[in-house]
Design a protein around this nucleic acid. Sequence first.
DNA 1: CCACCGTGTTTGCATTTGCAAGCAGAGTGG
DNA 2: CCACTCTGCTTGCAAATGCAAACACGGTGG
Lengths: 179, 179
Amino acid sequence: MALPKVGSIGEYIREQRTQAKISLRQLAASAGVSNPYLSQIERGLRKPSAEILNQIAKGLQISSQALYVQAGLIEDREPDSDVLTAIRADRNITERQRQVLIDIYESFRKENRSETPAEGAWTTGDAHPAAESPGGGTDSSPDDTPSPEDRVTTPEDGGSPKAAAKPKTSNRKTRRTDQ
Amino acid sequence: MALPKVGSIGEYIREQRTQAKISLRQLAASAGVSNPYLSQIERGLRKPSAEILNQIAKGLQISSQALYVQAGLIEDREPDSDVLTAIRADRNITERQRQVLIDIYESFRKENRSETPAEGAWTTGDAHPAAESPGGGTDSSPDDTPSPEDRVTTPEDGGSPKAAAKPKTSNRKTRRTDQ
DNA sequence: CCACCGTGTTTGCATTTGCAAGCAGAGTGG
DNA sequence: CCACTCTGCTTGCAAATGCAAACACGGTGG
């Protein structure tokens, strides 16, 4: 594998650490990871998992998001609409309320997005067995699904957003060649 | 109990998946993970790493941050200031510039926070990399790809506020987390 | 009835993470 | 000179991730 470069995450961590003038062992201790492992991470020999990354971020007292971005784990340009940021930044609501709002908003976004392609296509007679598409995207009937375990989504209003089926072609590719 | 509760991340994923009316295999395919693994993730039998989590988020077309928050990996409490959210929400700057701004801001925060009693720590003439004012000469390169070797640290100015965190905590034993 | 296609699940195995223990130097000073 | 402490790095090894293949169950229809 040769581990070409798992991204500059290691460099970034070492950068932040040396800048903070703390030793590898100190950071490892405060981050709760072992010193050798941190060493390997910093030199790109190991690819830390999210937990470790989070702990390192805490140990460095930097933003986890910054680390995730550096690790290329969040690089996907999220729809950074200020709505979501406003929701996340708002401190006058509880976490649950925040989550509900985010869920609703994302459901709306997803719904809108899956309606973009030309209608039909996946409703044609080619019998997509799994998709089956009850109602499809146009009617957007809110109460067509039994909703197995409705936990997070419990808005009082009945207009819960239901996302339309995703006409993703059944790509059989499972093996992902990465890294 | 052998498998610790990894949080409701699996539940959340399954929730989103069923909401989107896509099958487990479909999501696994579009996310680039194997079906059985996704099944185990959804039931909390496995703890997906950040990459897998990111892939799943992409497959679900939902926010990665939402997943990370659900996974308890982002804490969601760091960006408690609208400054950061404003920076992140601003779309008139490149990713690089945004990162620089965030780094600077975090450096300031860290400086303020670690400047508890006993001042005279940051005056030791160390150079703080991120806390450099990019000035007007910021590269307006439309390229927003985080280059690996191009670290944000480019100290050239000496008159910027320095942040030197000199934690009094001496070496601390590496705590081991049972697991 | 049983082949076929869909759903999600379980079973072994390769690969990897992540750590405890030990190694190689650089200061410091008794 | 050697003991002590710091720095970071290398070495095996337990445990986990993550996947391919096979399993169990349900519906269609030939």
